[in-house]
Computed example of a mutant assay.
Amino acid sequence: MAGQAVLTLGVLAGVLCSVHAQFDFNLRPIIGILSQAPSDSILEGLEDKNYTSYIAASYVKHFESAGARVVPILLNQDDVYYENLAKHLNGFVFPGGANSITNSSGYGAAGAKIYQHVLERNSKGVYLPLWGTCLGFEMITYLAAGEKNWLASCHASNKADPLTLAEGFMDSRIFTQMPDYVITYATYLNATVNFHKWCMTPENFTVSGLNDEFKLLATSFDFDGLEYVALMEHNALPIFGSQFHSEKVPFEWKNDDRHDAIPHSPQAIGVAHFFANFFATQARLNSQKFPTEKEETEALIYNYKPFFTLETSGFVQVYLFR
């Protein structure tokens, strides 16, 4: 085991040296997380309910645990706001939630603008990664399919699952960087957790044309045996999506009959940490920064405090924005 650990560290060091030789490796990555309109349950226990958007604190902790900092992305801003973020941040995250993925919601409208800016920056040679989780995954499929919804109804809320690996899964950024023991945990244990009512079936993934741009890396099955896409990544661009929630495994602790499937085993937490570390490393390959330290400081999530919402919602804590 000691020899194996030394070998792993040596390989890692070689990879990092290679990466550093090709990129301006950023040791202070900042990731923007898109906010969304809060549900009544989130606001229920608060005296002041005059908030227009929120981010679950578990997403913030997830990426902070991997050595990144977070900027909250507000809704209903002009395009200049989102364009400036695309020029100054090192990565974007579309989180899960319960909002529309279309322009009918602030989440969907902002997501569409950010997605276009991500495509534009990458087309100009700027390595700007994007990750979508659950609803965010679904929004990426919607936007990538020309704003057409190919999702199917499924029954996969409060369900922990292993991943079923797709053919050619190793031909991907994600799995070439995933240690063998993490692959074992993810594929043999109920190490991922799902909370969704809509999903992308492998058939629709193909019919929609998404398979021309994205690699289907893994699938899972809902309570009725319906197979759906659990993990994907873009063929050429640093765009990734998971239908499962890695952030919930280490950081969400609701334990009623709607949330008790969240796995908290060391193995499941190891899988979750891999995905946080993977995306933070993707963000480190982007060297953008704010024009001044003052602008950076004013944008960071440290300017806000999390609210305890576990008694009324499925989140332990949330950040709220006006």
Rank of each mutant, 00 (worst) to 15 (best):
Gly136Ala: 08
Gly136Gln: 04
Gly136Ser: 09
Gly136Tyr: 12
Gly136Lys: 03
Gly136Asp: 07
Gly136Val: 11
Phe137Gln: 00
Phe137Glu: 06
Phe137Val: 03
Phe137Pro: 01
Phe137Lys: 01
Phe137His: 04
Phe137Met: 02
Phe137Asn: 00
Glu138Lys: 00
Glu138Trp: 02
Met139His: 12
Met139Tyr: 11
Met139Leu: 15
Met139Cys: 10
Met139Asn: 04
Met139Phe: 07
Met139Glu: 14
Ile140Tyr: 03
Ile140Lys: 02
Ile140Thr: 06
Thr141Trp: 07
Thr141Gly: 06
Thr141Val: 10
Thr141Arg: 02
Thr141Ile: 02
Tyr142His: 02
Tyr142Pro: 01
Tyr142Thr: 06
Leu143Asp: 07
Leu143Cys: 03
Leu143Phe: 12
Leu143Met: 05
Ala144Ile: 05
Ala144Gly: 05
Ala144Arg: 07
Ala144Cys: 05
Ala144Leu: 12
Ala145Phe: 06
Ala145Gly: 09
Ala145Leu: 13
Ala145Ser: 14
Ala145Asp: 10
Ala145His: 05
Gly146Asn: 04
Gly146Ser: 06
Gly146Phe: 12
Gly146Met: 08
Gly146Arg: 05
Gly146Cys: 04
Glu147Ile: 00
Glu147Tyr: 07
Lys148Trp: 04
Lys148His: 13
Lys148Ala: 09
Lys148Ile: 04
Asn149Glu: 10
Asn149Met: 00
Asn149Ile: 02
Asn149Asp: 15
Trp150Arg: 01
Trp150Met: 03
Trp150Cys: 05
Trp150Pro: 09
Trp150Lys: 01
Leu151Arg: 03
Leu151Val: 11
Leu151Glu: 11
Leu151Phe: 12
Ala152Arg: 11
Ala152Ser: 11
Ala152Asp: 13
Ala152Gly: 10
Ser153Gly: 12
Ser153His: 06
Cys154Gln: 12
Cys154Met: 09
Cys154Val: 14
Cys154Asn: 15
His155Ala: 15
His155Lys: 13
His155Asp: 15
His155Thr: 09
Ala156Asn: 14
Ala156Gln: 10
Ala156Val: 06
Ala156Gly: 14
Ser157Pro: 02
Ser157Gly: 12
Ser157Lys: 05
Ser157Met: 08
Ser157Val: 08
Asn158Met: 04
Asn158Pro: 14
Asn158Ile: 10
Asn158Phe: 15
Asn158Glu: 13
Asn158Leu: 07
Asn158Tyr: 07
Asn158Thr: 13
Lys159Glu: 04
Lys159Trp: 00
Lys159Arg: 04
Lys159Cys: 01
Lys159Asp: 00
Lys159Met: 00
Ala160Phe: 08
Ala160Ser: 15
Asp161Glu: 15
Asp161Arg: 15
Asp161Ile: 06
Pro162Cys: 04
Pro162Leu: 02
Pro162Phe: 03
Leu163Ile: 08
Leu163Ser: 07
Thr164Met: 14
Thr164Lys: 12
Thr164Arg: 13
Thr164Leu: 13
Leu165Asn: 07
Leu165Lys: 01
Leu165Gly: 05
Leu165Ala: 05
Ala166Ser: 04
Ala166Ile: 02
Ala166Met: 02
Ala166Tyr: 03
Ala166Cys: 14
